[in-house]
Design a protein around this nucleic acid. Sequence first.
RNA 1: GCCGGGGUGGCGAAACGGUAAACGCAGGAGACUUAAAAUCUUCCGGGCUUCGGCCCUUGCGGGUUCGAGUCCCGCCCCCGGCACCA
Length: 834
Amino acid sequence: MDNEERGYVPSDVEQKWQTRWDERGTNAFTVEELRTAENPFYNLMMFPYPSAEGLHVGNIYAFTGADVHGRFQRLQGKDVFEPIGFDAFGIHSENFALKVGTHPMDLIPSNVKNFTRQLRRIGGMFDWDHAVDTTQPDYYRWTQWVFLKLFEAGLAERKEAPVNWCPSCMTVLANEQVVGGLCERCDTPVEQRRIAQWFFKITQFSQRLLDNLETIDWSDTTTKAQRNWIGRSEGAELAFPLIPIAELGERDSRPDAIDPEAVHLTDEAHTIRVFTTRPDTVFGATFMVLAPEHPAVDFLTTDASRAEVDAYRQKAAGSDLVSRQKTDKEKTGVFTGGYCRNPATGEAIPVWIADYVLMDYGTGAIMAVPGHDERDFEFATEFGLEIRRVVARKDEDADTPLEEAAPGDGRLVNSGHFDGMPKAEAIRAVTEWLGERDLGELQVNYRLHDWCISRQRYWGPPIPIIHCDSCGAVPVPESDLPVILPRVEDFRPDDSGISPLARVEEWYQVDCPSCEGPARRETDVSDTFLDSGWYFLRYPSTDSEGVAFDPEITKRWLPVDTYIGGNEHAVLHLMYSRFLTMVLKDLGHLEFEEPFTRFRAHGLIIREGAKMSKSKGNVIVPDPIIEQYGADTFRTYLMFLGPFEEGGDYQDKGIEGPRGFLHRLFDTAVNAEDREPDADVERKVHQTIEQVTQQIPELGYNTSIAAMMECLNVIRAGGRTAARAEIEPLVVMVAPFAPHLAEELWERFGHEESIFEGRNWPEFDAEKAAENSVEMAVQVMGKLRGTITVPVDTDQESAVAAAQAEENVARHLDGKTVRKVIHVPNRMINFVAN
RNA sequence: GCCGGGGUGGCGAAACGGUAAACGCAGGAGACUUAAAAUCUUCCGGGCUUCGGCCCUUGCGGGUUCGAGUCCCGCCCCCGGCACCA
């Protein structure tokens, strides 16, 4: 063979194998195969949003890591289904389309085309026959179907809720577009407007979403994030009776004394309920604070305070998110003029409103215990309200002054017959005591909010509902799906704050499916997270036209075996997917309720110690690198530069290491001789097999590659030529990282089938890997004083003798008495001596 | 503030409680080259050294242990996320 024929030219090799994989259908499953696969393994990665910039190195990192996993499983004999798709509906695409002035229907296909080209080029084992594009009617038809299922189950509800409004752009913003309370585009403070929107009642599933976390194998960081997001907290709901002003008598000596006639109590509202995690401190509740939006404010407010209250409420309602969300700002608030009774002390306490109390958590009302809550303390200090101690630590008593809020542990004081009771016990006891009068009960609260899926935008699947004056909200019949998103040239949201579709009369004017009278389509589209909340169900069933997902195929392939993705989706996407899966299970469409058996979050890539960003101009552009080094080298380097689950620092020159490794591997393999392997080399090879086989499924990619490099160094040591049996296992083990190179060498070894077609992973042989001698460390008083080489499994007596014979060891033991010997077989000996 | 994840050579990083720095980058020296590239060999944490070795070193301070980068307690710093959740 001459040099030209033998040399490793990555681009040629990669081109050759990508073409051949396509021709042979190596990566694609037929419907028949999907129905009959014997060792199904569903290997999923988070599908990308196809931006105009093309594939980001972060995408490539994630996909390569997932692909390595899939290819490894395939080499182990699994039928690995590894689909890919495009998450192209939604705000990102729409905003970009607005920016460049191209219609998303024109823009997206070219982005998808470019992504497809790049994804093919990196050599992922993608099944292109089962790709999914969320913007296609044959996909979003089923997204709309999912909505209908939730609607039928009573889990979709329309209610008023605030939307983010940018007064400068005059447009509705998605939460993602609000950064620190400011519009991401123009930095204008975002306001809130209330409009009717669709919600999915995910909060009904809070406890289940929490409990199930115990049953799935996910990255710890991700389960913790989910747990946090659900935010379970245990406490009590307590009732504070309202007091008609007349009863106050002379208690209140304010100059603006309250007009009894001004207090209006309705029968349903004799009390205000609060949620607290510290019912034990109720004796210290010296005032109450309501969220400005709280409905009770209306009838609590007296004529004297009305003007001030209204002004405050108005300000809070229009208030931009920045100032309301700032935790370090000074507390503001207004006294309503009304009072309620502390159910424990019987005292009348004033009711205030303040924006630090949020309407959408708990009951929208709190009992303020300034002595033992920081925020209440601050508020009380600001407005001169009473601060009372009701909990004391050991070194304190009932009269110890409070310099600051004391939220910690202790025993009750100033709390009637509960005095002296420890906090934990009191939480129960006080609640029970109030419960006897129907004024309290233990209660669990969650931070999780219902999922608002309405978007007053254009680029998304229309919500399949028709509003009829006589029938109300009527679901579009399933047979009428999909509700096609019409092509609208002017898709910019405008200052009306309603969806662009609301301007397309010929589209929204329809007959009511129920009464056939004139009706109007819902003109909001759904959240992009709804598209991505079920896509993994569609992949294996893209051949099925009449159903969202084929029951038989779904049963065989789902739940997903391994899902790999970024932690930026640790809460929303993963939570919504879990929720939808639970609902579909309850409705009898699925047999499992957790979609992803195993989830692993990958880390982030930075470059030369700095975060990559367009503004810094330090973004890695993959195409030129792949052109210069080839996809195999790029993949291997990405996997080598740090632990996959932690990410790493991309150093431009670092790629030279893996490049040299793959070239040497190629060179060694093509020059290998047909002869018996050398025992020492074979030992190293089998030790490497053991290590790599164990580490790859754990995503220990960087150390696996290091081990293979080390192994190759041993094989080539002193310029020796390899025996084929020495190098072939290494070629297979490198295949998940450098699939094209491995295929090429596999073929040159004389195999006719693809390396990925069979169970070709090398078998570990413990006997061949076994060492016959080991180097042991010898310590004296825990300090290394020498090493000895002894046969494996040398007993303590012989090892000690050998150690003592070591010159340097002997010197350190000289004149000392050995008190104790620590012997760790095959590792070390430590003489404890003095 | 709260919740995660981290602090180890010049750099990216390794290390079941057991020889810290494997593997790689950068760098030094050398070989092959007319030369360069590529390739190969070799050195490479710091300080002493009588060349046998000795001492120091995993963000800081304590502790447990025969032995701690690793476990425990208390701090400091960096990165990411959440943010008045009662």
